[in-house]
Amino acid sequence: MGKKIRQEDATEEINIMPLMNIIMLLIPFLIMSTEFIKIGVINVAAPKIGGGASSSEPKKKDEKPPLNLTVSITEKGLTILTRGKKIPEGCDLKGEATEAKLPTVKKIGDKHNLPVLKQCLQTIKEVFPDERRIIIMAEPEIRYSIIIDVMDHSREGKTADKDMFPEVVLSAGVL
C-alpha cells in the first residue's frame, strides 16, 4: 500500500523569499541603468573653417551648380539665401531683396518665427526636390537651442517620414 499524500501537503506554499531577495537586488541595479530621458543625435558636417588636416571623403562632382541653401540666424530674425541670393520677406523666390524686406523671417517678440521658416523651406523644397543640404550660419551670440530648433524645422517635411533638408552644414559668420 502506498502512502496517501494528504491534500494539505500538496497545496503548501512554496518559499518565495529567495526569489524576493533576487528581485530586491535586481531593482536597484536596473534603476541605476534606466534611461528616463531618451537621447538622440543630429548629424552635422563641419563648418568651412574646421576643415582640418584630413577631409577624407572625396567630394562628388555634381553636374548642376549647388543650390547652397543657407539659413542665417541673427538677432533680428532668419534670412534664407539660395545661391548666395537673399530671399525677401514673404518667401518670394524671384523677388528682389531690399533692405526693408529683410530678414526673410522676422522675429515675433523675442522668438524666431520658426513655422514661417518651415513654410518657406517647404516652398523651396518643392522647387528643388533633390536638394538635401542646408547651411546654417549664426551670429556668435545665438544660443545652441535656437540652432537645434532651426535644424529641426528644416529637417521635418510635411509628413513625418519624408525629410526636407537632413544634411546640415554649420558655417561660421553671417552674411
Binding site: G40, P47, I49, S54, E141, R143
Partner: peptide, 26 residues
C-alpha cells in the same frame, strides 16, 4: 553660444574629427 560651438567644432576639426553629432533630448 554659437561662438563657443564654432570654437569647439574648429578645434575638433583640427584634431581630424570631421563628422559631428549633436546630442539632444528626444
Amino acid at each position: 553660444s554659437f561662438r563657443l560651438l564654432s570654437e569647439v567644432m574648429y578645434t575638433a576639426g583640427q584634431a581630424e574629427f570631421s563628422k559631428f553629432k549633436f546630442a539632444v533630448v528626444k
